[in-house]
């Protein structure tokens, strides 16, 4: 390789992976100088091109994907609704003919755990806090006006849970995320702890709905329950002994 070939190669790809080019570089002081200038230029070029990446870009993309996936599932459900309806009718008829049994309806705990372990499972990985306004808006859409807004929420979405309407949130809790769902039109009578599919859970009646907590362990349940009772009912009622 001569100097001219080397300089052309240097201008088109300064990484010099070609063996003949490396051998020429070792033997030619002029091209060694040219290579040093080219590498300095490349370094400046790479630094200049590395514009600042917006904070939270990856989290926003993942949230958009989760939301889009959910909408797609709803659209698909509508599109094939008549098939589902026909299939359901056939199934109901078959079941009715063969056996006269009624299946017990799924409990709220079953529905919540199935929802958390479904497509929204990735929401548990989110860490960046969502805006307080998003949380307030989600609750307001469900007819609940928060007295205060907890800050440590990394995911919020208005999700249907079976026939119920809910606000689905995730609190990262230092790497042990807790799924928090406020089911607005479900009335529980008393606090109930449950265990499903390896998850600990708790149902807590608050105001006119039920707060459902689910996580790998129940270590943070008391604190999270307290936080959301304050947020939904206000601290005054807690102090007055509404629990």
């Amino acid at each position: 390789m001569d100097c001219l070939e080397f300089r052309r190669l240097l201008g088109s790809d300064p990484r010099i992976s070609d063996r003949a080019a490396r051998e020429h570089l070792e033997s030619c002081p002029f091209c060694t100088d040219a290579n040093a200038r080219a590498q300095a230029f490349e370094s400046g070029l790479a630094q200049a091109m590395a514009v600042l990446v917006p904070t939270g870009l990856a989290d926003r993309i993942l949230l958009a994907q989760l939301t889009g996936e959910r909408q797609h599932q709803r659209t698909s459900a509508r599109r094939f609704g008549w098939i589902a309806l026909a299939a359901a009718a056939c199934m109901a008829l078959a079941i009715g003919v063969v056996r006269h049994e009624r299946a017990a309806p799924a409990s709220l705990a079953d529905l919540v755990v199935a929802h958390i372990n479904g497509p929204e499972h990735a929401a548990l990985q989110l860490r960046a806090p969502v805006a307080a306004a998003s949380i307030e808006r989600a609750f307001a859409d469900r007819g609940v006006h928060l007295k205060s807004v907890p800050t440590e929420v990394s995911y919020v979405h208005e999700c249907p849970i079976g026939a119920y309407r809910s606000v689905h949130m995730v609190m990262p809790e230092n790497g042990a995320p807790v799924s928090v769902l406020y089911v607005v039109d479900h009335g529980s009578i008393a606090n109930t702890d449950f265990r499903r599919d390896g998850m600990q859970g708790r149902e807590v009646p608050i105001a006119n709905g039920t707060l459902v907590l689910a996580a790998q362990t129940d270590n943070r349940f008391d604190a999270v329950e307290h936080t959301w009772r304050d947020a939904i009912e206000g601290p005054a009622q807690v102090a007055a002994g509404s629990r």
Partner: peptide
Amino acid sequence: TAAVSNRQPQFEALVRAHSGELYR
């Protein structure tokens, strides 16, 4: 649900690994 769950970690890894470079 199962398929979505399996694809999700792969997708998340892709986003975290390449979103910055792709933005630039």
